[in-house]
Design a binder for these strands. Structure first.
Length: 637
RNA sequence: GCUGGCGUAGCUCAACGGCAGAGCAGCUGAUUUGUAAUCAGCAGGUUGUAGGUUCAAGUCCUAUCGCCAGCUCCA
């Protein structure tokens, strides 16, 4: 008998008939029903795949990352099948998986209405219940093209024509067929928990010159409970939406007269300024020097910096005295002018120049959003002018600084990407390679796992991007460290070396928080508007029980205010429960209850946001408590 | 910029093409209250803006501004 040997993940191996299907092996071994695919020699395949050679096999359950991917991809197919059965004439294009879900792009003249989406979901349920077998079939490209041409699927034909291999694979479920690499679940009954989430337009192949398709987004999970949890998280994210909280907490607003440009109200301005003064405090320790530079500069400068050629569409211009000026979208050109305001020596380097200057960038109307994408903002921006051999230590120190920042704001893990030399680049290959090596070494030295994106750097230098995960496990790119060989060249920056020769410095563009506006938006969502004590616009609110306690409460209020705390007095003629509720909803860290007992004992009774009550204590002790809490939050350096 | 959706009181939301409404917030008064909402009254609007259709438009049509979900872009 012709048999082959299959090695399992536990190291055991079994002998089976050559050509038998994986699922036969699975049922023979009594493998868990959660298995929806397998990895044969580490390659993900269908359970219906026949085994022809000795191999290793690993079961892929629907709970695993690979399994979820298969599940979602199959759900995308299920959706496409539903759409085509309901709306004949609709063409399919592509339907990949994405984080937490999938989408499928369709060519159809009319957009999908909410009612139609409900119908599609209902049909998907039916098709899943029918438990249609999903089968794989391979055929030569020419036959596949013929098949899809007959079906009127012009996009699929275009896709197949671009596939280099001679054979392609098709998947069928019921009457429906789609071109797909696979693998897929064995039958549609495996799909139990899915939902179409949104509908949107999308261009064929992502190019806005191409025709627009209708994209349906969906999500799919191993079971209903997981789907529900996912939807709950989405809802939670909506509750934390900084645009909603910004209004509710009276932090900022927008007005049509200045699209995508926030107005920070008094409370929002406090948060904003707290962020800046926090970064300033780091600048003292990390030896930065802050500068202030003009808002509007002659276009001649922007020509020289290259911004006019490459970035003009994102800039604002104005004319005064028949001279053209550009509103600055970045601080760097201004900083090079300060650099070259006098002769620099190697002793001056590294020169770390920080600037909280206001920047203006025109962003197309469709891309702006709340605080996270605005047209007017400032950054915790700095430019480090250094010698090439100082790059590594500068990056190293930047990473330390970054770690400090993330600890303070309690962001979780970070993902790091190193982007290297693109095809179009300026400067010497040798300098590039040295610089990339320096960046990599600094990352390794700081024990940071990173991913290399080859060719993804800007033409003027390699860069490192840092993505942090917030409380809802959403990723945000905040910090970036960008090397620049180009601007020093353009502005002919030099320093005198120890040997007396003129040398060219390297510039490092870097930001930790990124734009303050954007960071504030992210922070609001990260902490759901409940800012840590040191940032909270109002840190303490004093609540009187009755009017009789107002005089004493006023004294406490003044004592706290004179000690520098942001404090409010709620002496309104309302019930205590009402005032507590309002203080809680305003997310104020501490409510101080002042009633008869406190007046008698000359104490205050603190209630922490969230409901925890502390035993009454004197004002001085309370201030001490606040101080130590802030010190702890900011983290001792 | 493109595709789609949405703009009604400060906020959240009602109103078959037929008299623009409610709750909360605000203001006034009563109540003097101990850990998440005391009661009553008053006020609040050119329904984003500009045109059009209609006897009649918040509702239908066109344009425009803004917002939202995506696409795209982020030297």
């Amino acid at each position: 008998m012709d048999s082959i040997r299959v090695t399992l993940t536990d190291g055991k191996s079994v002998e089976i008939r050559r050509g038998s299907q994986i699922n036969e092996l699975a049922s023979a071994l009594g493998v868990n029903g959660d298995v929806i695919a397998a990895k044969v020699n580490r390659q993900l395949v269908d359970l219906s795949r026949a085994l022809e050679e000795d191999c290793s096999i690993e079961w892929v359950s629907r709970e695993s990352a690979d399994g979820l991917d298969v599940l979602r991809h199959s759900t995308a197919h299920l959706m496409a099948q539903a759409v085509q059965s309901l709306f004949p004439g609709t063409q399919v294009t592509i339907g990949p998986t994405i984080e937490d879900g999938f989408y499928y792009d369709f060519k159809r003249e009319q957009p999908f209405t909410p009612e139609e989406i409900e119908k599609i979901e209902a049909r998907m349920e039916e098709l899943a219940k029918a438990n249609l077998k999903v089968t794989r079939e391979e055929m030569p490209k020419s036959r596949a093209i013929e098949l899809f041409r007959k079906l009127g699927e012009n996009y699929k034909v275009a896709i197949i024509e671009e596939i280099p291999e001679e054979t392609v694979s098709l998947y069928r479920q019921g009457e429906w067929v789609d071109l797909c690499r696979g693998p897929h679940v064995p039958s549609t009954g495996v799909l139990k928990a899915f939902k179409i989430t949104t509908v949107a337009g999308a261009y064929w192949r992502g190019d806005e010159k191409n025709e627009m398709l209708q994209r349906l987004y969906g999500t799919s999970w191993p079971d209903k409970a997981k789907l529900k949890e996912h939807l709950r998280l989405l809802e939670e994210a909506q509750k934390r939406d900084h645009r909603k909280l910004g209004r509710e907490l009276d932090l900022f607003s927008f007005h049509p007269v200045a699209p995508a440009s926030p107005f920070f109200h008094p409370k929002g301005a406090i948060v904003y300024n707290q962020l800046i003064s926090y970064v300033r405090s780091l600048y003292v320790r990390y030896a930065y020097e802050e500068v202030i530079t003009p808002q509007i500069l002659d276009v001649e400068l922007w020509h020289r910096s290259g911004h006019y050629d490459h970035y003009r569409d994102s800039m604002y211009f104005t004319e005064v005295d028949e001279r053209q000026f550009g509103v600055k979208p970045m601080n760097c050109p201004g900083h090079t002018l300060i650099y070259s305001s006098r002769k620099r020596s190697y002793r001056d380097l590294p020169l770390r120049m920080a600037d909280f200057g206001r920047l203006h960038r025109y962003e197309r109307s469709g891309v702006t959003a709340g605080l996270t994408r605005v047209r007017s903002f400032s950054q915790d921006d700095a430019h480090i002018f250094c010698a090439p051999d100082q790059i590594e230590s500068e990056i190293s120190s930047l990473i330390k600084m970054l770690r400090e920042v993330y600890r303070t704001f309690q962001f979780g893990d970070m993902q790091v990407k190193l982007s290297t030399r693109p095809k179009d680049f300026i400067g010497d290959v040798e300098i590039w390679e040295k610089a990339e090596a320096a960046l990599g070494q600094a990352l390794s030295k700081e024990r940071i796992d990173y991913q290399v994106n080859p060719g993804d750097g800007a033409f003027y230098g390699p860069k490192i991007d840092f993505v942090v995960l917030d409380a809802l496990r959403r990723g945000w790119q905040l910090a970036t460290m960008q090397l620049d060989f180009f601007l020093p060249e353009r502005f002919e920056l030099v320093y005198t070396s120890a040997g007396g020769t003129d040398e060219r410095p390297v510039m490092i563009h870097r930001a930790l928080l990124g734009s303050i506006e954007r960071f504030m938006g992210i922070l609001i969502e990260h902490c759901a508007g409940a800012f840590p004590l040191w940032i909270a616009p109002v840190q303490v609110r004093i609540l009187t029980v009755t009017d009789d306690h107002k005089d004493y409460a006023k004294r406490i209020f003044e004592e706290l205010r004179n000690a520098g705390w942001r404090v409010e007095l709620d002496g309104r003629n309302e019930k205590l429960g009402y005032k507590i509720r309002e203080a809680q909803l305003a997310k104020i860290p501490y409510a101080l209850i002042i009633g008869e007992k406190e007046v008698q004992a000359q104490t205050v009774a603190p209630r922490r946001r969230g409901g925890e009550n502390f035993p009454p204590l004197g004002v001085a002790e309370f201030i001490q408590k606040l101080r130590s809490e802030v010190a702890q939050e900011k983290g001792a350096a």
